[in-house]
Design a protein around this nucleic acid. Sequence first.
DNA 1: GTATAAAGTGAACAATCGTTTACCTATTGC
DNA 2: GCAATAGGTAAACGATTGTTCACTTTATAC
Lengths: 198, 198
Amino acid sequence: MPVDTPTRRTNNRAQLLLDAAASLFALKGYASTTVRDIAAAASMTPGAVYVHFPSKCDLLVEVYKEGVRRVTERIESSTLGIHCPWKILESALTAHLEAILDRSAYAKVIIRVLPGDVGQAGPALAALRDGYESKFRRYVEALPLAPGIDSRLLRLLLLGALNHAPVWYSDQGEEPTGIAAAAVQLIRGGASSVEQVA
Amino acid sequence: MPVDTPTRRTNNRAQLLLDAAASLFALKGYASTTVRDIAAAASMTPGAVYVHFPSKCDLLVEVYKEGVRRVTERIESSTLGIHCPWKILESALTAHLEAILDRSAYAKVIIRVLPGDVGQAGPALAALRDGYESKFRRYVEALPLAPGIDSRLLRLLLLGALNHAPVWYSDQGEEPTGIAAAAVQLIRGGASSVEQVA
DNA sequence: GTATAAAGTGAACAATCGTTTACCTATTGC
DNA sequence: GCAATAGGTAAACGATTGTTCACTTTATAC
């Protein structure tokens, strides 16, 4: 009867390790983070890490998976009940921004660690990342765009703009909500003070 | 008579090392690049590196400096003779994009290696990066922007959008010129097919 | 030619890396 | 109780890291 009784040996130490790894990968990158660092952050011995994960690389892949899962969940729940495609996009971008700014170290890892940095696991990570970005593909393609606007390019520019926020964001400035709103306003109506001639 | 005669011992080996370091830092990041890798790429011995640079960290700082110098130069020369502020911005963005996409590994290092990754030299790198981005501050502030548009936010979003291009760019798609033009068009006139209500 | 100094070699340094091993501990199923 | 097993420790493994050192090579200045 493998039910979770209070006395049953809890195996949430693996989750603790994942949390520690996510924080450190997000902070220092993959190569600069040591297995010993991760173990220490989880109050464990380096050897104990390998009881739960076969390698440092696998640890990153699991963090990546969990990160994608969490952000996807946040985005989908944040867009529920909204019908205006612009508002849907804005909500999704806000959720995305909040995730990569402070809420979850997992999300930060996704945009901090490039798939190419991990050697063998590169393709797997790239696939996870693509799966996540495909959400936004639908949001952008649902927009009533003027003719001549490349929706793919629009999506890539938009995500790139927000993904760089961790570099310059500070608590004193604009809130994530405001940043996402400004981004949507920009690409929706433009920033020029005069109407553009065709 | 320390004139550069053809027979004079050339000290362009340091430049060769810088080139090799720039390529490798751009490709694999700072932590994953080995001093031995750099030396081998320059057809030298690891020990010879320390004849020209006191440490791996200094090597990165020099690459950073050179990168900022080159991109700044390209941007300034590309905007010469243009008067329309939107066209100036577009030219500058095109030069920036070309630099970080293929032309110069030096520029790629600037957006690939985060100042925080190098420990002590972090502030110095951040200062160099800021000096470079201040160019764009002037270009953006020269635009005739609609009231309520935050020029700082606009600049950060714009640069972020382009700085992510190395992740998704492929030779088959749009050229750097087209990407920069699309970005300017987007933020200038917007992408919506219908006029936005105030 | 010869002294000088820069450029470069090759081996070694201590430190640290990811990972493995042998051993211990404590909980679980029966 | 008792074997079984997952979880964890301490120490060590070989490989690799940035860096140094003693020594040679080579081009220049005089």
